[in-house]
């Protein structure tokens, strides 16, 4: 696996007093789906802004696709990394959905023909083709986020960052976006970084990175990380319901393991019911 993002000894402070990012080291590999988990204030959104060069580190380096992020390279690097932000209302500039998707491409002087092709392709990808001429502000939150994703996809970047992109949506909107991220993952040509505090979203990722006080405190498979109650509680997070039920059932010797996936837990119960 080839690293696409390499972060080394990263520090950042908003006020020159408190460190929002405090000696953070992280490697993200090409085509990986990494969920960055942490409570509000753990530094995960700051990290996202540093990754796309919206903030400048105090110290340390961020390498994207072998290029070190600096004032000279920031525009090149934004061609490698797209981002979808948390608040669907704060990221619209166009007067129609189509204009909005075109906006980022216009900044990169992409030809009109190519723009049209990409708008067509990605509006279909996010299943919003019926809304191309609609005004963005009249869409629901979930629809807005889908348009924002189409805009980010149209930039044809290697890396896509979702900064709590589902946290303001209703359950339907949330499910739509998670399905879409899963499809992008299955298409297999993007590296996906989803910054979240939603455990269900983290469960879908290849790898979970847990942040606390501006640094990485744990990284591993979702099935390993999410069952670690001490770690999760310590980071202001909760373990899934399946883990809690596993712990209870273990007391009665009905199962022997702690399960993160509901399917695995139910299967284990089913096996027990057969031998009993």
């Amino acid at each position: 696996m080839k690293p696409i993002i390499e972060i080394t000894d990263l520090y950042f402070s908003y006020d020159n007093k408190n460190l929002a990012i405090n000696n953070l080291n992280l490697i993200i590999y090409e085509k990986e789906w990494v969920a960055i988990l942490g409570h509000n204030g753990s530094g995960k959104s700051t990290l996202a802004k540093l990754l796309i060069g919206l903030l400048e580190p105090l110290r340390g380096t961020i390498k994207v696709n072998d290029k070190i992020l600096s004032q000279e390279t920031v525009y090149d690097i934004r061609r490698e990394t797209g981002i979808v932000f948390q608040n669907p209302d704060n990221q619209f500039v166009g007067s129609t959905v189509a204009d909005d998707i075109a906006f980022g491409m216009e900044n990169q002087q992409i030809s009109r023909e190519e723009m049209k092709k990409r708008i067509d392709k990605y509006i279909k990808k996010v299943r919003m083709e019926a809304y191309l001429q609609h005004e963005p502000h009249l869409l629901s939150g979930g629809q807005k986020q889908r348009v924002a994703i189409a805009g980010a996809l149209a930039m044809d970047t290697k890396v896509l960052v979702f900064d709590e992109a589902t946290s303001m949506l209703d359950p339907q909107g949330r499910e739509d976006i998670n399905t879409l991220i899963q499809e992008l993952k299955n298409d297999g040509d993007k590296t996906i970084i989803s910054i979240t505090h939603d455990i269900k979203e983290a469960m879908l990722a290849d790898r979970v990175v847990v942040m606390k006080e501006g640094t990485v405190v744990a990284t591993g498979k979702p099935t390993e990380i999410l069952k670690d109650e001490t770690l999760m509680k310590d980071c202001g997070l909760d373990v899934p319901l399946t883990v809690k039920l596993s712990q209870e059932l273990k007391k009665y010797n009905i199962i022997n393991d702690i399960y993160v996936n509901q399917e695995d837990l139910v299967k284990s119960l089913w096996e027990y019911s057969l031998i009993k």
Partner: peptide, 30 residues
């Protein structure tokens, strides 16, 4: 999956575990 019936009004993990123990014929000591 198990073909059993449980009370849908159960609302704590502890109560669900106990209901399962009962439905599956008691705790396993072996």
């Amino acid at each position: 999956k198990l073909g059993i019936e449980l009370d849908h009004k159960i609302n704590t993990v502890e109560n669900l575990a106990q209901a399962l123990v009962q439905a599956l014929g008691g705790a396993n000591h072996v």
